[in-house]
Design a protein around this nucleic acid. Sequence first.
DNA 1: CCGTACATCGTACATCGTACATCGTACTGT
DNA 2: ACAGTACGATGTACGATGTACGATGTACGG
Lengths: 261, 261
Amino acid sequence: MSSARSSAGDPARTLALLWRDHAVVPRRGPSRGLSLDAVVAAAVEIADKDGLDAVTMRQLARKLDVAAMTLYTYVPGKAELLDLMLDAAYAAMPRTATAGQPWRKRLIAVADENRAMYRAHPWASTVSTIRPPLGPGQMAKYEHELSALDNLGLTDIDMDDCLTYLLTFVQACARAETSVRDIQRESGMNDEQWWAAAGPLLSRVMDEKKYPLATRVGTAAGTAHGSAHNADHAYQFGLQRVLDALSLLIDKASRRQSPAV
Amino acid sequence: MSSARSSAGDPARTLALLWRDHAVVPRRGPSRGLSLDAVVAAAVEIADKDGLDAVTMRQLARKLDVAAMTLYTYVPGKAELLDLMLDAAYAAMPRTATAGQPWRKRLIAVADENRAMYRAHPWASTVSTIRPPLGPGQMAKYEHELSALDNLGLTDIDMDDCLTYLLTFVQACARAETSVRDIQRESGMNDEQWWAAAGPLLSRVMDEKKYPLATRVGTAAGTAHGSAHNADHAYQFGLQRVLDALSLLIDKASRRQSPAV
DNA sequence: CCGTACATCGTACATCGTACATCGTACTGT
DNA sequence: ACAGTACGATGTACGATGTACGATGTACGG
């Protein structure tokens, strides 16, 4: 996989699994030792703790005290498993009731809920959901989030665009955070240590006269980034920018809908 | 790898390669059949055509008519190769001279240059550059892009933040485009076909009364997205939003610097 | 009470990155 | 001119990965 992707398996089979559409319940043979939910939950647990790469069929099987191939009686393959993991994560999200509040507050709640989900499941931020997992979790999430944009005078397509714009931003932030965490774990260095190691080497090998701005700004940014809470800062800062941008669309639409407001 | 990452190898070794710091030129043994540049160029070619996953040591070796292990005399490993590929892509970017133009035009040029680079090298959009490849290409790119934000009254850290904000947006757009392309190639279906396959299945399995907004908006967005140029649209639309957001910072800073403007 | 449907699982295969040992080449010191 | 050696190239091998295949055992329906 270039990057992990949702909905990479057979649509029919995947949808049946996501909606737990056990069309035919087996009537013969030994009873099952596990359940689909148990398999998915175990996979999510591994991914939460050790990252998506740690979710291998053998690892997962070991955790469930079962042979690797046994998993294939619960799930057609790894692609479908990923869809089930994502949809389960979506299904478990809290959905704050914000009806009656101004749209800005409602959208901030949506963003924060997503951020919390990515904090709990960092691996989810690395999955491309261009083709989303079409399960009950995703549907409930989508329904809830759209309600924050309903009755503002936006067209259906505008609603979807605005939501996508917001969620893309939150996912990009989460992805950056996840990346920092993963690379730190794999390299055994945090960013500060890495800069401390690479910085001197770099200035010995590059001609600082040739890149004056890069040297000056890079040094300033490097030391600032090494210091602290820049992920939080980037999120708060960026979210305000995103909401400002959306307000241009939303306020115009609202005015058109109800000129008094 | 959870996702591909730059600067995942040993910093010292990587920097020496990136800056072609051949400290000791070998004086003995057979002459080399290839060059570092040839190896990197071949890797980029494969990645451009068939995606980053297709860049395996064996594939690359086959393309260069050499045994797989031979590559390890040119490059310490795959992690370093990725850094070299990225830095080469950066180095090859055109850098439009926009001195004297208003900052908005300059930033649009920066964004467009990056977009063009990602179009030429879609795999580059999938690489996390939280720790950037500290090579001459990256430096030249950074120097050039910072110059578009220089003399606007911004602090060094603001300059870096603004640039990062812009480039993150462009990369997110490119990543989406790449994802669409990759998933289409792998699944053998374009998005329209996929929706056509999954849509009916979904509506049979889900209770549309339970998700009224999702059904209504999802259908509208689904058909609209199936139609056409939404990647371009998302880029143009989003870029304007990003620039609007940045103008709040920049105009304020400029006014502080030169109240007349 | 047997046939059969089904869960389980051991083995095997192709793929990956790369460690290691070997081989042959071409320069260096005499 | 020749030996010693540094170094490029490469064949083989190892431990991962996802999963196809076939054997084994279980429990229900006739």
